[in-house]
Design a protein around this nucleic acid. Structure first.
Lengths: 344, 344
DNA sequence: TATTAGTAGTCATACGTATCACTAAAGCGA
DNA sequence: TCGCTTTAGTGATACGTATGACTACTAATA
């Protein structure tokens, strides 16, 4: 019956005590063990294929060097990129990252901590309602001591900065303003905003930014409709809009979509109506997912710095774990001017 | 100094011993504790907000009820769907799933087990080279006892069934055959195959299936070129191909792409050449990602049952953990006939 | 009454690690 | 030789849980 080797097995093999093995393999405490002994221990460990038992280590230390990354869904590659950035920074600090899609998996009723990932030092959450999540996991006060969740420190990403947890965000307002300014520069004055029918900070912010930017233009008009974030949903909404434009403003010359996927649906509705993008209607998206470049014409949109966002958020969370208080941060998006926008 | 409550704290609050708390909260062992006592314990636990310490439990039990899901990347939503299916089945059995993108994060040199996720009962790996991975983590023999990784049981998904680990696959060959038959039914006889330049089982299988299916047609011709799985890469390859068709067969009337993304690139190359899809060239993809429906014309492709795949693979892995030996399994893909294929 | 069977719960222990408190030996100046 | 410091290592312990072995008590049977 093969058994996984423990530090005690290594100790026996190396002819030292278990304490010595632990000291050597921890790496610190140099000077407590002679170089020769240390080498003997390391050799024995390698020979036996020893790997520390993490459950035991975590129990002993009361921390796990693991961070939970909560994302709304893995169906959107944006969150994959956030993970990549976060994991890179975490790994550089000896931390691991566990991904948990929520509420995508398990549904809103099931707390992320109903999952067996509970052995966690901190939580990084993306694009979620801060306070809902904070309630679920119990945000750490300074009074709490340094144990594993619940009560783990919470860092938010792409979320309402007015919430209870510190945030790292994309400067969504700035990105939307760039889109509106780009369109205004092409002579557009009558705008439609196809809004995502999701109550999330990022979409509320996108809507407000459009309203503000258009309001700043002389003689500009703006109408707004909501639709689900799907190709079919956006297609239907824009189809109806084109058939029955709002009486006052008439048909817009530019359509700002909350999201690239909705823009894809808008393309279809425009074609359904026998019109052309961008000749009859300029269209913009937001996010710059793969889709944006695949569409014909290629979509003018704003690229979100997903990996950088993950990196900065993880840095901030690690700072919190070290007792720091990171300041709120905003990263700019990149305006990607492509072929879906044209002069009126 | 607030401390996270332990089972001992609950015991004190309920006026019983720690063992009793453990027995009650484990749920089994019924009959060992009277209903009244059990209720008292549960009340106390709820009042204190007690949550078991997983590190301690894992150490004690020698297992974690957690499975590692290794996927090549999270940039592809296919793997998000695999996760969703796998997590659903796992949760129903009291297991959690930890996602690890590999080699996407960390690179090939870094074993998945360099990450602090090592406390794991089994590994589910998707779309990877079985033997490479098996070497890295050490596939479990029957001789090993039931401890955490390395040496954890391995279950593969969308991978070579001839490898050392059991597999759950999409019936890729059948899907490709369906595409070729569909095209043949539209009168096509001259085919191009735009192959992914990635050495993976699924792509090798796609290529072989196309070759076999075309060979089974009378008077049919097939040529093949490789390209990276990107819009730009596929676009360039198809552009060259259209400019300089292979001497013998001439320009094909149907282009089979290994992947939807490559099909998106092919669309662009066809337009660049002043041609039309599907009038001048029918195009097919594979996978049915969001892109397929966004393209204009919508792409004929094969939908992979990603969630079902995750579900079945997780079931099989749990069966292995129970000492079973699941049989290899293949799930059919769905032919999605859309507008990118037409009569010659 | 003596014995057995069943019920309700407690005691003690081990999982594998990291670290504090300790010791034995050696070095060293006076 | 004596005290003092430094070096190199060991012993013991606790983290929080689950569970086998045990006990105290009650009820049933002979």
């Amino acid at each position: 019956m093969l058994r996984r080797p423990t530090s005690r097995d290594v100790a026996v093999a190396a002819g030292v005590s278990q304490s010595t093995v632990s000291i050597v393999l921890a790496g610190k405490w140099t000077g407590r063990v002679s170089p020769q002994t240390a080498q003997t221990v390391r050799d024995a460990a390698a020979r036996l294929g020893y790997r520390p038992n993490l459950a035991a280590r975590n129990l002993r230390l009361g921390r796990t060097r693991t961070v939970l990354l909560v994302v709304p869904t893995l169906a959107n590659p944006f969150f994959g990129a956030v993970y990549t950035g976060a994991a890179r920074v975490a790994a550089a600090h000896g931390f691991g990252v566990v991904v948990y899609p929520w509420p995508d998996a398990g549904g809103p009723a099931r707390s992320p901590f109903a999952a067996p990932h509970e052995a966690i030092d901190g939580v990084l959450a993306s694009s979620l309602a801060t306070d809902t999540l904070a309630d679920l996991i119990g945000v750490r006060d300074a009074a709490h001591d340094h144990r594993t969740a619940p009560g783990a420190p919470l860092m938010m990403l792409d979320s309402d900065p007015a919430g209870r947890a510190p945030t790292v965000n994309v400067d969504v307002a700035d990105g939307m303003r760039a889109l509106v300014d780009h369109l205004a520069g092409l002579g557009h004055r009558r705008f439609w905003h196809l809004a995502a029918d999701v109550d999330a900070w990022t979409f509320r912010t996108r809507g407000r930014a459009i309203a503000d930017a258009v309001a700043a233009l002389p003689d500009a008009a703006l109408a707004r409709r909501a639709a689900p974030i799907t190709i079919a949903g956006a297609r239907a909404a824009v189809r109806d809009w084109l058939r029955a434009p709002d009486s006052a403003a008439g048909r817009a010359t530019a359509l700002l979509c909350d999201d690239d996927v909705m823009a894809a649906g808008a393309y279809k509705a425009v074609r359904d109506a026998g019109l052309d993008v961008p000749r009859d209607l300029s269209i913009t998206g937001f996010d710059d997912i793969l889709l944006a470049e695949a569409l014909e014409p290629e979509l003018t949109t704003v690229r979100l710095p997903a990996e950088a966002l993950g990196e900065r958020a993880m840095s901030a969370l690690l700072e919190i774990l070290d007792g720091g208080r990171p300041r709120p941060l905003s990263l700019p998006g990149d305006l990607m001017v492509r072929a879906s926008t044209a002069r009126v």
